[in-house]
Each structure stands twice: as structure tokens, then as C-alpha cells.
């Protein structure tokens, strides 16, 4: 089962660069963890519904009214780069 577990590929999905050293180390450590969680497959879950959260609530509605919150200046205060009330990122389209 764990033959399919590939740290390098999974890290790409997570947009997380890793060093070669980390790839080797995490592959071994997480294979060990995955082997441990294999035990869950022994549990009979026939007819059991999954639990996503424990609250007895499903849809929560509120009035669609504007509320006072952060203004643009506050929202941008922690931005690594900003200009003209926008977050600046490297060019996306060539």
C-alpha cells in the first residue's frame, strides 16, 4: 500500500519545496506513521456515516448586511509587497 506514497510528488501537490535530505528523511518517517494508521483498515465501518465535525449544526445563515471590518490599509499592513491598495506578486502571465 505504502509503495505508492511518494514524498516528492506529494510535496509538489502541497506547493512545498523540500531539500533532498528532507525528502529521504520524511519518506522514512511518514512511511512509519502510515504503517501505524493501516490498523484503521481493520475496523468494520459497514453502514457507518463519516463524522466531519461534532456540532449538531448544518447550515448557518445570517443576514446579508455589510459590517465594519478592516479597511484596505489595515488589510495590507502585513503585506510583503503592496502598491495602489493591491498585493503585489511576481508576474503570472508570460
Amino acid at each position: 500500500m505504502n509503495a505508492a506514497f511518494d514524498v516528492r510528488y506529494t510535496a509538489q501537490l502541497a506547493r512545498l519545496n523540500l531539500s533532498e535530505e528532507e525528502i529521504v528523511k520524511f519518506q522514512a518517517q511518514l512511511s512509519h506513521v502510515l504503517k501505524y494508521v493501516e490498523k484503521l483498515k481493520e475496523v468494520d465501518i459497514t453502514g457507518v456515516e463519516p463524522t466531519a465535525h461534532t456540532s449538531p449544526i448544518y447550515n448557518v445563515f445570517r443576514a446579508d448586511e455589510p459590517r465594519q471590518w478592516l479597511d484596505a490599509e489595515q488589510a495590507l499592513a502585513n503585506a510583503p509587497r503592496q502598491a495602489n491598495q493591491l498585493f503585489i506578486v511576481p508576474k503570472v502571465i508570460e
Binding site: V37, L40, V43, I45, T51
Partner: peptide, 12 residues
């Protein structure tokens, strides 16, 4: 195999 199975065992 993992996430859904875990959510079901969570119910138990």
C-alpha cells in the same frame, strides 16, 4: 482509504 475511513472510525 485514509480520510474517509478515519472519519467513519471517528463516528465509532
Amino acid at each position: 482509504a485514509y480520510y474517509l475511513q478515519a472519519q467513519k472510525v471517528r463516528t465509532l
